[in-house]
Design a protein around this nucleic acid. Structure first.
Lengths: 321, 321
DNA sequence: AGCGACACTGCAACCGGTTGCACGAAACAT
DNA sequence: ATGTTTCGTGCAACCGGTTGCAGTGTCGCT
């Protein structure tokens, strides 16, 4: 209605300095009037930039991921990007489909704790730039938590309390983090380690292991995440095994539920929000640089939070029957 | 490479019956070979259908929403739709921007527990079809939880335990659910109700109210959600007020943290996953029907789950000083 | 007055598909 | 053998923007 060519309208929004102030104002006024906003999808057709990022997680209900998501979304917003989140339900098949669908609708994808094989990820990478969180992949940008040293710290804590027979509840198959934790635990000398898994990384997964843990000859447990640890504690308690006097339990993640459950959960805190922010930074860097991009690696520190689910081993109760 | 016109390729994917079986196979083979997939965004330009839905929540870290999201995503997937989730951080401003950006990239939006005013929502509605969850809006499709009767049931439970001086911890300003709960509570005869709020619907929000609740002359509390209830219990406990012997607390939502916190939280369960599924159904119905759509209303039942955070009032302790 | 520089703005091709229409060939009917 | 369908495919316009190029008008300078 302002009687100008579409290209002028276009420039008003994407290159304001190229259009006369007065014309621009007229266009803006008309746009305001008609409630017009440039169509991002159409723009993406020619520019190749959607100004959207995709974020894929295995389980949106896992509080660890929620915080990562919040960090990523808030940070992306400050860079005029939007983050679309999708949940794979721990299903590698769904994960792959999701990436392919997302590929053309976003400028880059944050892949968090993928369950896919490295090979498939390498292939998908041709379709869209990636930053992989919680998995080390050569030649790609990664955001990692130093979960190995977190696990070692947790086990050192158990050892310092006198525990030497320790169980490790592994996470899901395909999880890099789970492998990392397992390797770290195995590398600790002088302990007797039993590994259970792979398991579903949920409260239910922990609950299901209660009997096995109770009948195994262990006094300390490190779980793949807090959800499992909480489930385990619940299970042990209902079996009449007290935490921490009979078994000490350490989780990983530091989610709210761990702080309010009783006993309060000792855990390895993961900087989820920071990871989300960092991942967005690396991804935008990658997107901006195009083909020439150098993959970057960020490793974030973890730290042990000692609460009430761990305590000194009681030797007298653990003599032979 | 298969030597056919683009339009034939297009038809191979969007109208297979129009193309010769043999040609189709050749195209599909070539596509497979080149890793070609139709660009959804480009398709959307002409068809007006992106096959994407947007889902907007106030706080993705709230477990109630996580389950709603999972329900919606899983259900949408079976209809060949994808759901993009975005978090507003409880900020109406962000909520509005998000809707506008999403508007052209999705076929419809699920707006969950909006903080925006009805007026603004009515306006935004011209840009994109909506289904509003947890808010009654005339002329629009809604998915509601019968939170009013849930609240009445919760209060009846408290009354049956002998409580009559009851506190209500309201939710955030602008929340329809909060208003609904408050109205329901006020409509219960024979109790002495104190309303606190509006409050931040988080653990921290509940924690912050502990002192006020402790010094108010109440023996029963109904909180806007479990997160607040958990925070309140934490706060009361650290003030030396025991739950449930001195104060009984009821939450709303039935999140995991409530089941593992001690005492286990009595709560009004909300069918979050079902709500997500239902909302997707209504939205697709709306999208399919275009302008002629009749708005639908779905109300889902809630139910009281009695656990350990509520108990009989102890009259002897509550005599005057 | 004449000329180049500069600031705007319009033109048209393009992004990657979709779709109504037309056309040719094969199949069927008369 | 000829006329009529039917089927399969190509053509070209279009969706809503972006952008290189060219054209116009204004201004300053010699």
């Amino acid at each position: 209605m302002s009687g100008v060519h579409v290209s002028t309208v276009s420039r008003t929004f994407s290159a304001p300095h190229l259009v006369n102030t007065e014309t621009r104002n007229r266009v803006l006024a008309a746009a305001e009037d008609l409630g017009y906003r440039p169509n991002r999808a159409a723009r993406a057709l020619t520019t190749g930039r959607t100004h959207n990022l995709g974020l894929i997680v295995a389980d949106i209900a896992n509080p660890f991921f929620s915080h990562l998501i919040k960090g990523a979304q808030a940070h992306a917003r400050t860079r005029d990007y939007h983050v679309f989140v999708a949940d794979t339900d721990e299903d590698p098949q769904v994960e792959e489909e999701l990436i392919q669908t997302l590929a053309k609708q976003v400028d880059g994808v944050l892949l968090c704790s993928p369950r896919l094989s490295n090979r498939v990820i390498e292939k998908l990478r041709e379709d869209v730039p990636f930053v992989v969180v919680n998995r080390r992949m050569k030649g790609m940008s990664n955001v990692l938590m130093d979960v190995g040293s977190g696990a070692r710290e947790a086990i050192a804590h158990l050892v310092s309390l006198g525990h030497s027979r320790i169980a490790l509840l592994a996470g899901p198959a395909g999880s890099w983090t789970s492998k990392e934790i397992t390797d770290a635990a195995r590398s600790v000398p002088g302990i007797d380690l039993t590994v259970f898994g792979p398991n579903s990384p949920t409260e239910h997964g922990g609950l299901a292991l209660a009997e096995a843990v109770a009948s195994a000859d262990v006094t300390g447990v490190l779980a793949y995440n807090d959800l499992m640890a909480i489930g385990l504690v619940e299970g042990l308690t209902s079996l009449g095994v007290d935490v921490p006097t009979q078994v000490s339990v350490v989780g990983i993640d530091d989610i709210v539920a761990g702080r309010v459950s009783r006993p309060k959960l000792t855990t390895v805190a993961m900087p989820a929000e920071a990871a989300g922010r960092t991942a967005v930074d690396l991804l935008l860097q990658l997107v901006g640089a195009g083909e020439t991009a150098t993959p970057a690696l960020a490793t974030l520190a973890t730290n042990l939070i000692i609460r009430d689910s761990t305590g000194p081993v009681r030797h007298e109760l653990r003599t032979d029957p």
